[in-house]
């Protein structure tokens, strides 16, 4: 019994030009503490699936169970992170990280301590009193990462969190994310269209294809942990990337 179980999930949008099938018959199991990536081209339904997992959107049909309960609404044990940092410019870095605690009415003193620990964890010690506009894009995503962990959610849902960063910053953030994930043991569902990133990070990769959005297959990543950028020289890394490209039909 996994932490999250989806069975025959469908999602249909009603649009002006008729019904649009975003997801069809998607079934999967996600275990506690696993790092899962959803990979696929635009329109494959990976962001829709993430929204459904977050309880922000309703499935049209199928079953979704989280920790033994039917799941169809936002929960405080799920955290979400987006492609943009979505920091509030009127709040300092520290105040931004404390937002989830304030919304959920968590203990103020504990949250204050936790905020300092988290800023430490993401390498932003000393930036707590700055404002978001004073930080670079990579630093802002670090703050978003700290905020994601603020209320200690069990499941982290990340929607292309490093998609807007340059290649170098993205790689650094990937390494940091793995370090934090190994430390905290969270269950992560990570959306990306970057195959290499998915292979580098994940235990398993859900490969999705568009029109209509389907789960084409699941790739088990056979690479040792803890991982450093060294694994990118591992022949198995290249092989996984190649396999996924073939599943997505992007080989020319």
């Amino acid at each position: 019994m996994g932490l999250i179980e989806g069975t025959g999930l469908d999602k249909v949008y009603s649009t002006a030009t008729g019904p649009l099938v975003a997801l069809t018959n998607v079934s999967f199991t996600i275990n506690e503490g696993e790092f899962i990536s959803l990979v696929g081209p635009s329109g494959c339904g990976k962001s829709t699936l993430l929204s459904i997992l977050g309880g922000l959107e309703q499935k049209t049909d199928g079953d979704l169970v989280l920790a033994g309960q039917h799941h169809d609404a936002p929960r405080r044990d799920i955290g979400m992170m987006f492609q943009t940092s979505v920091l509030f410019p009127w709040r300092t870095i520290r105040q931004n990280v404390r937002l989830p605690g304030e919304i959920l009415g968590l203990d103020r003193k504990q949250q204050a301590e936790r905020t300092d620990e988290l800023l430490d964890l993401v390498g932003l010690n000393g930036f707590g009193d700055r404002y978001p506009s004073e930080l670079s894009g990579g630093m802002r995503q670090r703050v978003a990462l700290a905020r994601l962990l603020a209320h200690d959610p069990r499941v982290l849902l990340m929607d292309e969190p490093f998609g807007a960063l340059d290649e170098f910053t993205r790689e650094t953030m990937n390494v940091e994310l793995l370090r934090i994930w190994e430390k905290t043991g969270k269950t992560v569902v990570f959306v990306t269209h970057n195959i290499g990133e998915a292979v580098f990070l994940s235990d398993r990769i859900f490969v999705m294809t568009p029109r209509p959005g389907r789960l084409e297959g699941i790739v088990e990543v056979d690479l040792p942990r803890p991982r450093t950028t060294e694994v990118m020289r591992d022949p198995r890394y290249t092989e996984h990337v190649y396999d996924i490209r073939r599943m997505l039909g992007v080989d020319h």
Binding site: L56, P74, Q83, V86, F88, L99, I103, H151
Partner: peptide
């Protein structure tokens, strides 16, 4: 995305109004 963030944190109408 900011609205999504607030919803994911189970913020209601009033909290979303006040904080965002």
């Amino acid at each position: 995305n900011a609205v999504k963030l607030m919803r994911s944190l189970t913020a209601g109408r009033w909290k979303t109004f006040r904080h965002l």
